[in-house]
Design a protein around this nucleic acid. Structure first.
Lengths: 244, 244, 244, 244
DNA sequence: TATGAATGAGAATTCATTCAT
DNA sequence: GATGAATGAATTCTCATTCAT
């Protein structure tokens, strides 16, 4: 293996090359482009087939890059897989961060979050399959990722703030654990997509048609918002719980 | 993941079955035992590693059965995988059917169903991983299964009945789609287990500790029952629905 | 890798199959024969090319065995190399043990030992090259060999006894370290063979012709026996030793 | 094994050579420095891993020189290997030539030679491993070296002269073949170092500790000088031999 | 039924070497 | 002279599957 040290290090900051007429370090640009091609093809392949099922040859072929280059840039299949995973996580977290929930009413904010989650998974099915695969492997790659160390979910804090505001305003029931809520919001959308194939088979109809999607999107919001409604007078079903 | 559900462990002590009248000949019983050993080991292996990652050698070794026998009984890896899948599905459906929800109050019935789902996934993690794997393969095996043709979910009908009773009794909101509800109930538990590894990593704490499990179980019921509460007077989120 | 556990375990004791007319477990016999073929070809290849230079394909081809079988029997190239090394060592140690030096006069015994060493290397050049290669690798395989744990040199004790007898009888100088002597005896023959190619080149004549070999054999004995002669009266090179 | 002998480390501090009158142009001096860096790194790598095991990438990395440059200066791996070999040989021969044995007493001269050989190998382990590797390859590179054509051993002539003087003076036995003696002197030291790893393993103790080295050095001299002692009256063990 | 041995088609990975700038 | 990117031909190793008994 050409040793990590020899791997390309220069990461120019801007997304586009400085508009210098003429050459503008083409080798460098090619390197970054090659890296991108590989990552893109690898994402598709790993999402489709998982780590074990993915074929390095296929990735090379699809990306139009010499197979040897995969090793030049990513050392081995496992590291490439990790890079794909990191990339996908970073994209998702970045998306989450760009959500502006602060200046919305609490319930509107929650609804927006539910719908965002749904839409994100709808538009990025690769994320579903990558997560599925990584979970089957016990998240072993994710654990050893250094790039993701501080990438981890800040959304829970945001949810906590929203809940507090809603409780104060009387529009949201008290004692809702924001982490559990986050998991539930994710679950209602994620499961629909991740288990779409078996659900479709089991119910004998395509759960992923446009109509079915729309229905599911609305339902997910209904469930979460329905749950969050404050009780009329009485107590909740389970007496009292604290957030853990 | 020794798949408790799909391989009800029949390790009888003696080499021959107790001479129960009408039982099969010893040889055949041994054959059945061999089949069971293989299925059990295969369930664990496929659950742990998926179809592509699973190793026929490992299955043979773990089951203590000669590799040639796998082929004798199951033709090839793919068919063995399908057999494992069918076994697991049948076990789950059987379990579901044994639930006696009829003579419970509607809300109690729903709560029981939610908790049953949670407990089933908690006790049968193999089911989670098998489903994950099969979904990544587009449910292609499930689709061609003949044994599962009529195994498909009757629970939705039951749920429908319960909902109707609850609506009539004023304890459940109207216009709840039973299929969506079934999916949501599954989702709230399934996702928690299937994505446990990455969630634990992302949140930096073990989401699957006993305490965390208990909290999750209660939360899932809260969400579903909270959602199902009928609205006080006002309208629900989706416009056209009314109450009186 | 088909797992060590599945590797053939049955090692029948006798060298020849029990003369049972007819079948006599041919599968078993084939296994042992196959193992032998592989080891033989591997010994030649590793001796000729070293660990890094050896080609698994070549070994398979020369041994007439399917390449896959190398892995079936020996797991990987490294383990095969170790097996070859162990085999060679065991053969050498066994040879050494069959030397009957006890009932010879001390000087005759030493001479016999010197000549034995010379002849062994002459007849088993593979041993030379295997040792060369293994030493270049820092003896890393040898160190982790369990089979050789107790195979290690007993010859030094024998030499010690011989030296003592010679000193007592006045035919051998006192204070000779038996380990150093063993190393020197080995060195005088080993180096001649191991460095034959460069010596031949440097001196512009084939050091390994029959005549040159005979001369070297005699010279080695001369050096060792000449060295072992007791001093006439005078003191030896190292001061403190005395005689009377 | 940074091969002290073959690569007299010229790491001058400044980027350009001190403007010594008559020196080459900076560019050229840099070229020479690059060459040296490569040779030094290559010596270490080939010594450590042999020709087949050595990695061109590693050499480039260690020498801090772009891989392309290796090819610019040395055409290919094989030629680089040969260059390393020649360098090492030349260094050794040069060292040997600088030995002033002429004005010493015969026995003192021989002792000095023995100790020189020992020390040289002790201080230049790379020489050991390069020779080992080249011998395993049948000295094929050495044979085709033109630079070494006339580099070959003049030491034997010197030894011959010393022996003659010793015989004449009665301090050395007659009929000693100088070539055999040279080989034996080399052998006693070389083998100790070249086979150190396996010897240490076989004897279960580190043969290369400082104490063990000192003992070996003394022993080597003892053996050679003990052997060279003239016989009291009687004949030698093997009747009479001529130098060949 | 049962078993150890065998196989061929890949799969990942490595490596010396060359290209383009 | 110097450099990073690229390449194709091996090379080791894996795996599901079948053979012979």
């Amino acid at each position: 293996m050409p040793a990590k040290s020899s791997a390309p290090r220069q990461k120019r900051s801007g997304r586009f090359p400085a508009a210098r007429p003429g050459s503008l370090q083409p080798a460098l640009r090619d390197a970054e482009r090659t890296r991108r091609s590989i990552l893109k093809a690898a994402t598709a392949e790993f999402a489709e087939s998982g780590l074990a099922g993915a074929r390095v040859d296929k990735i090379a072929e699809v990306s139009g890059v010499n197979k040897r280059m995969l090793y030049y840039y990513f050392s081995n299949k496992d590291d490439l897989y990790l890079a794909v995973l990191e990339e996908a996580y970073i994209a998702m977290r970045t998306s989450e961060r760009s959500l502006k929930l602060d200046n919305l009413e609490p319930l509107a904010a929650i609804r927006k979050l539910v719908e965002f989650k749904f839409d994100y998974f709808a538009e990025n099915p690769a994320m579903i399959w990558l997560l599925n695969g990584e979970n089957m492997l016990g998240a072993q790659h994710l654990k050893r990722s250094t790039r993701l160390k501080d990438m981890h979910i800040s959304l829970v804090r945001t949810i906590s703030t929203i809940l507090d505001a809603g409780v104060a305003g009387g529009t949201i029931r008290p004692n809702v654990d924001p982490l559990q809520l986050y998991i539930s919001i994710s679950a209602l959308s994620y499961f629909f997509f991740s288990n779409g194939p078996t659900l479709s088979t089991a119910f004998g109809k395509d759960v992923r048609s446009a109509a079915a999607r729309a229905a599911r999107r609305a339902h997910a919001a209904d469930v979460i918002l329905g749950y969050l409604r404050p009780p009329p007078e009485a107590l909740l079903t389970s007496p009292k719980r604290r957030r853990n």
